[in-house]
């Protein structure tokens, strides 16, 4: 799981152009939106694309994102349970 969390942090940094940020800078339990990483709605769409592109996960219901994108740790847990690649 630790390896998946680290890889996911790298993928998030690259996909969302989080310049000057390293995986170590992201607290896997911190909120991705609002006070945490401060992501916006377009970033949420990019995270949906990231999950489909890298892990073969297609969210059937976009409103699931609210729960899945709570933090990197929650996202990694969802990926581990649902990934197809």
């Amino acid at each position: 799981m630790d390896e998946l969390i680290y890889t996911l942090k790298q993928q998030i940094i690259e996909a969302l152009n989080l310049e000057d940020m390293k995986p170590e800078d992201i607290d896997e339990n911190a909120s991705l939106f609002g006070e945490g990483l401060g992501l916006d709605s377009i970033d949420a769409l990019e995270l949906i694309v990231l999950m489909e592109k890298n892990y073969g996960i297609k969210l059937q219901d976009p409103s699931q994102g609210k729960e899945i994108f709570k933090s990197v740790a929650v996202m990694a847990d969802f990926i581990q349970k649902n990934r197809t690649k």
Binding site: A15, L16, N17, I42, D43, L45, E46, V49, E52
Partner: peptide, 9 residues
């Protein structure tokens, strides 16, 4: 085929 929302905007 993965359309990028961030690029599209």
């Amino acid at each position: 085929f993965f359309p990028s929302p961030a690029a599209f905007v």
